[in-house]
Simulated scan of single mutants.
Amino acid sequence: MDAQKVDMYLMTNGKFFEGHQIPMVREKLLAMDEARFAQLHSINLKDPTTILIVSIVGGGLAIDRFMIGDTGLAIAKLLTCGGLGIWTIVDWFIIMGRTREVNATKFFQIA
């Protein structure tokens, strides 16, 4: 893969990954062929900031967990009313990191 394309991809999508994951993502992108790179653009990466806003607004209803694909935790959070509010508040601090982990998992499945 062309280094310029890789750098452009990382500039555009770097916010979807943790800082320590960026070098691994760059290595995978450099080793990737053009067909795989085109397939990579089709995956749906979630924006951590958007998920945080959803968590603040609708975290008690577990909308944030449903959006990132944590269905089991979302059902548990929904049934316990956000862990009586405690789980909802804790998610405000960890949901962005969890979103980036889910994005990295999706990326490495393709790459």
Rank of each mutant, 00 (worst) to 15 (best):
M1W: 12
Q4A: 09
V6G: 02
V6S: 05
V6I: 07
D7H: 05
M8P: 00
M8F: 15
Y9L: 00
T12S: 08
T12L: 07
N13I: 01
G14K: 07
K15M: 04
F16T: 00
F17V: 01
F17D: 03
E18K: 08
G19Q: 13
Q21W: 13
Q21K: 05
I22Q: 01
P23A: 05
M24F: 15
M24W: 13
V25M: 07
R26G: 03
K28Y: 11
L29G: 04
L30N: 05
L30T: 09
A31F: 09
D33S: 03
H41K: 06
H41Y: 13
S42E: 15
S42W: 08
S42N: 12
I43C: 01
N44V: 10
N44A: 09
L45I: 02
T49R: 09
I51E: 05
V54S: 00
S55I: 08
S55E: 15
S55A: 12
S55R: 13
I56T: 06
G58S: 06
G58I: 08
G59V: 08
G60A: 06
G60I: 12
G60W: 14
D64L: 01
D64G: 01
R65P: 00
R65Q: 08
G69C: 00
D70I: 05
D70G: 01
G72D: 11
G72F: 15
A76N: 06
A76V: 13
K77Y: 14
L79V: 14
L79Q: 11
L79F: 14
T80S: 09
C81E: 09
G82Y: 08
G85N: 06
I86L: 09
T88K: 03
F93T: 01
I94A: 04
I94Y: 15
I95N: 05
R98E: 12
R98Y: 15
R100L: 04
V102M: 12
K106W: 08
K106I: 06
K106N: 05
Q109N: 11
I110Q: 06
I110C: 04
I110L: 07
